[in-house]
Nucleic acid binder design. Structure first.
Length: 749
RNA sequence: UGGGGAUUCGCCAAGCGGUAAGGCAUCACGUUUUGGUCGUGACAUUCACAGGUUCGAAUCCUGUAUCCCCAUCCA
């Protein structure tokens, strides 16, 4: 079904296919220093999801290398989150701290092979020595320490003989690396701190870059999936595993873009601030984007998972619209939960011509939800409806009750307003109405047409409930801080009235309050005496949207103007080459320019040119194809020579092969280093230009695709490419495209 | 300013030289005892921009622009 796979799954499939790994092992490696949020859910969904899809397994590993920030309460929250989302980790929960001894041994190994040293510079000096992004760093004088001295020092660091910060263990890599992460990264620091699991055993703790890759390796992880900000760390990941010369297979790191959602924040720091400053009630405040928050709010794990699936996995930073999440929870709950009636803002209605008391049977689910179940609805002369469902002066298009317009009480009778009772302020406090005895739901013979059916509750049996209405926590789409908080993110309604069955029968914990939204019995504060419901999400409301004037005025052709920077001027050599290519060899500006500015490319070009005098075609293939290879490899690594390129071009010049075939042959050459003429021979790639051979193929394709022929004749010129492509495919790429093109055009006219 | 990434509809996102997928949002219409759901239809002649290569480019080449990440003894 899902035909397009994300890039991670594609990599996994490839690795399985090539036999790089027998079993796929992933891991979800949070640091237990905060509550997991929906961004973690994305990571969980990816890591556990991939493991599940490819019959592997996923480890839950607490990355607990920093004793000063981590705590066991977060470990529990993390475990809860994974379970709640429906995943099971392999065997036990892993901890990086489980590997502290092995990690220490690996560090000793690194020292022994001269790839790590104990540095005794202080923090400021280390920073200073590191240099900046534009200036190279300089190595500490302590890097010269002997292996023995390093070993001795490191052991004493471990034993706790030194103060915090007195020494660190660093990898010996390259202080002039353009990637700052490679400037002798720190591997261990001294911390006389109590670790929540390891206790006081250790005085040194490993850094992320050292611990993470090795923990992955120890666990046999194959695909170490993390977020984009670790792209720069990947080289260290590789460096550590490679210089330790570990027994293969080893894991590789891949990065994806972390999740952002508008109108909320996702950083642990900002989330922690909201909790600590008591802006929210806690980590599980239903307005928080934490797993605990969504859970308390009433979101289902299915909806969160479905959301994660919908948004996809890619490498571009992005901000997902909350409406996508809201869609997922509505979509899930629509099929699942019972519909009940709750009046949020009650307005009393006295039905003057009704003196009876009856119980009306009402189904819990609408006709389009295939679930059974119903309850009794008491009905009497005193009921409540929502204030919004009556209007003395209705706006146009208003479907509900007005002095002139009757309305149906859902599952019950049609009601006509007779009188409005107002208080001294002129506010309506009660409606006197009449019901139509022959209009009862299911046996309506009144013939009265109403525009809508509204929810209601019977006055004596209705239960008072507390409603907590949540709105987005921030008023800004990309909030920076507290100043962007939405002051109305929580509205508490104390006097809402609900039909009795909800409280007495408790058919579920989640409900749709008809025409209002989905609600969830608060798992903490709900008391039988004072039932509390959280609003999960409102129903989609196309009426209130319609009332408001359209918010966005068309941002008419704001075609952004782009200022192009200037190309650096050529030096004398380059200029001379450019002139020669342009004037003598008649290359076009672009090609001459590229060649002139690239010394490697131009000498390659000239070498080929010395064998074959075909300046244009050689230039094209050098600039477009050879240049690509040179992006990944050094010139010495190329499997093909300039002479071979000349031979390839010769075949193009002879029209033995088309440029399309030439590209394929080039691919082959760069992989195998095989002679181009041999490749062409071996694969029989000589192009077919004879119309009598091509025509039958064209006619066959035309006959097979009458729809597209029709479309083409209707003016869809793009289909020409479709037909040419099909013919080329059919002939294994050998048909002469120019000839095909002309013939197809002719045949279709 | 050095290095590493990214750029396809309002928001996500497929696409890997041969007809610009899909979802959310939006807008119509239809069904509806929820202004819900559901159904139908509309919504990128164009892929950040400019050149080049090619019969054919979102896809290959060159350059430019914009955004993100890296100079914690955090992860």
């Amino acid at each position: 079904m899902n035909k397009s796979k994300d890039f991670l799954r594609r990599i996994v499939e490839e690795d399985l296919k090539t036999g790089k790994y027998q079993e796929i092992i992933t891991r979800f490696p949070p640091e237990p220093n905060g509550f997991p949020h929906i961004g973690h859910a994305k990571s969980i969904s990816i890591n556990f999801g991939i493991a599940r899809d490819y019959n592997g397994h996923c480890n839950l590993r607490m990355d607990d290398t920093n004793p000063t920030t981590e705590d066991t309460q977060y470990v529990e929250a993390l475990k809860d989150a994974v379970h709640w989302l429906g995943f099971e980790w392999d065997k036990k929960v892993h901890f990086t701290s489980d590997y502290f001894h092995q990690l220490y041994d690996y560090a000793v190994e690194l020292i022994k092979i001269g790839k790590a040293y104990v540095d005794s510079l202080n923090e400021d000096e280390i920073r200073e020595y590191r240099g900046t992004v534009t200036t190279i760093g300089k190595r500490s004088k302590y890097a010269k320490r002997s292996v023995e001295e390093n070993l001795d020092l490191f052991e004493r660091m471990k034993k706790g003989e030194f103060e915090d910060g007195a020494h660190v263990l660093r990898a010996k890599i390259d202080m002039s690396a353009s990637n700052m992460k490679m400037r002798d990264p720190l591997l261990y620091r001294i911390r006389h701190a109590h670790h929540f699991r390891a206790g006081d055993e250790w005085s040194v703790y490993p850094m992320y870059d050292f611990a993470h890759c090795l923990s992955d390796y120890i666990e046999g992880v194959t695909h170490s999936i993390c977020t984009l900000e670790f792209e720069n760390n990947r080289v260290i990941y590789d460096w550590v595993l490679d210089t330790l010369k570990l027994k293969p297979p080893r894991p590789y790191q891949y990065e994806f873009a972390r999740l952002n959602i508008n109108y909320t924040v996702m950083s642990k720091r900002k989330l922690l601030e909201l909790v600590e400053k008591k802006i929210v009630s806690g980590w599980d405040d239903p307005r928080m984007p934490t797993i605990a928050g969504y859970k308390r709010r009433g979101y289902t794990p299915e909806s969160i998972l479905n959301f994660c699936e919908q948004i996809g996995i890619a490498k571009a930073n992005s901000m997902v619209d909350v409406s996508q999440l809201e869609f997922c929870i509505r979509d899930d709950l629509n099929q699942k939960v019972p519909r009940v009636m709750c009046v949020v803002n009650p307005l009393k209605v006295t039905i003057t011509n009704y003196e009876d008391l009856e119980e009306i049977d009402a189904p819990y689910y609408p006709h389009d939800v295939p679930k059974e179940g119903s309850r009794k609805l008491p009905f009497s002369k005193e009921i409540y409806i929502d204030r919004d469902d009556f209007a003395e002066n209705p706006p146009t298009g208003y479907f509900r009750l007005t002095p002139e317009q009757p309305v149906r009480l859902k599952y019950a009778y049609i009601l006509t307003c007779k009188e409005m009772i107002k208080d001294t302020n002129g506010d309506i406090i009660e409606i006197q109405a009449e019901y139509h005895p022959d209009s009862k739901s299911g046996s309506d013979t009144s013939g009265i047409k109403v525009k809508s059916a509204i929810q209601w509750v019977e006055a004596n049996s209705a239960k008072k409930v507390e409603l907590r209405l949540y709105d987005r926590l921030f008023k800004d789409e990309a909030p920076q801080g507290k100043e962007d908080i939405n002051p109305n993110s929580l509205k508490i309604i104390k006097g809402a009235l609900i039909e009795p069955a909800v409280i007495t029968d408790k058919p579920d914990v989640r409900f749709q309050f008809e025409r209002e939204g989905y609600f969830y019995a608060d798992p903490v504060d709900y008391k039988d005496a004072v039932p509390v419901f959280n609003k999960i999400v409102a129903l989609k409301d196309s009426w209130s949207k319609k009332k408001k004037p359209s918010k966005k005025l068309a941002n008419a052709q704001t075609k952004k103007i782009q200022i192009d920077g200037e190309a650096t001027p050529m030096d004398a050599d380059e200029q001379a080459r450019f002139d020669k290519y342009k004037n003598e060899l008649k290359l076009n500006n672009e090609v001459a320019n590229i060649l002139a500015r690239d010394k490697t490319l131009s000498s390659f070009y000239e070498e080929a040119l010395s064998t074959l005098n075909s300046p244009l075609n050689i230039a094209n293939i050098v600039v477009n194809e050879v240049a690509r290879e040179l992006k990944q490899k050094e010139i010495s690594e190329l499997k093909f020579s300039a002479k071979q390129i000349a031979r390839l071009v010769k075949m193009i010049d002879d029209e033995t092969i088309s440029t399309k075939i030439a590209k394929g042959v080039f691919e082959e050459m760069s992989k195998s280093g095989e002679n181009p003429t041999k490749i062409v021979q071996a694969k029989g790639l000589v192009q077919i230009s004879d119309p009598t051979k091509i025509l039958p193929v064209i006619n066959e394709i035309i006959a097979k695709n009458p729809d597209n022929v029709q479309k083409f004749k209707e003016g869809n010129g793009k289909l020409l490419g479709f037909f040419v492509g099909q013919v080329l495919k059919k002939t294994g790429g050998k048909a002469n495209p120019k000839v095909v093109n002309e013939l197809v055009k002719k045949q279709l006219e």
